[in-house]
Computed example of a mutant assay.
Amino acid sequence: MITFVAVGILLWLLGTSLSSPEGFLVASSIMSSFFVKFIMWGILTALAYHTVVGIRHLMMDFGYLDETLEAGKRSAIISFVITVVLSILAGVLVW
């Protein structure tokens, strides 16, 4: 549910910034707050996690990853590491 609402917020912000030069200034002023940047970073981190784990599950469904406990633990750790790296990159992008 949170991811669904987050995508709506991102699309609203994108639509505002692309609507006109004044809309871009409004979106820029919204993004200048630390609190908004922190929330944006959280949204991007949640979307990255959702995407990475979704790809992991697709790979398991298609048979590219074994469905054993050991392989599941290993792929979960790799997914988490990739998400942390993407989270750091999202922080650099936002700030």
Rank of each mutant, 00 (worst) to 15 (best):
M31W: 01
M31T: 06
M31P: 04
S32Q: 13
S32E: 09
S32T: 08
S33W: 11
S33D: 13
F34Q: 12
F35H: 04
F35M: 06
V36R: 03
V36P: 01
V36N: 02
K37E: 05
K37H: 04
K37T: 06
I39D: 07
I39A: 14
I39Y: 07
I39M: 13
M40T: 15
M40Q: 13
W41L: 12
W41F: 07
G42R: 10
G42V: 03
G42I: 07
I43S: 11
I43G: 08
I43W: 03
L44T: 03
L44A: 12
T45Y: 12
T45Q: 09
A46I: 13
A46W: 05
A46T: 11
A46F: 10
L47R: 06
L47V: 04
L47D: 10
Y49F: 13
Y49V: 15
Y49I: 15
Y49G: 13
T51D: 06
T51N: 08
T51A: 14
T51G: 00
T51P: 07
V52C: 02
V52Q: 01
G54K: 10
G54Q: 01
G54C: 04
I55M: 09
I55H: 02
I55T: 03
I55L: 12
I55Y: 05
R56N: 11
H57L: 13
H57R: 15
H57T: 08
H57I: 07
L58K: 14
L58A: 05
L58V: 04
L58T: 03
M59C: 11
M59K: 11
M59W: 07
M60Y: 02
D61R: 15
D61N: 12
F62N: 13
F62T: 14
F62Q: 14
F62E: 10
F62V: 14
G63Y: 00
G63K: 05
G63H: 04
G63T: 01
Y64D: 07
Y64H: 05
Y64W: 14
L65F: 14
L65A: 03
L65P: 01
D66A: 12
D66E: 10
D66H: 07
D66P: 06
E67R: 15
E67F: 02
E67T: 10
T68Y: 02
T68D: 06
T68A: 01
L69C: 00
L69N: 09
L69F: 13
L69D: 08
E70C: 00
A71K: 10
K73C: 04
K73G: 08
K73F: 12
K73D: 09
R74E: 11
R74Y: 08
R74N: 08
S75Q: 05
S75K: 02
S75P: 10
A76T: 12
A76W: 11
A76H: 09
A76N: 08
I77H: 09
I77N: 09
I77D: 10
I78R: 15
I78W: 09
S79L: 01
S79A: 11
S79R: 02
S79V: 01
F80D: 05
F80N: 05
F80K: 05
F80C: 03
V81L: 14
V81H: 00
V81D: 02
I82R: 02
I82S: 06
I82Q: 03
I82W: 04
I82H: 04
T83Y: 00
T83W: 08
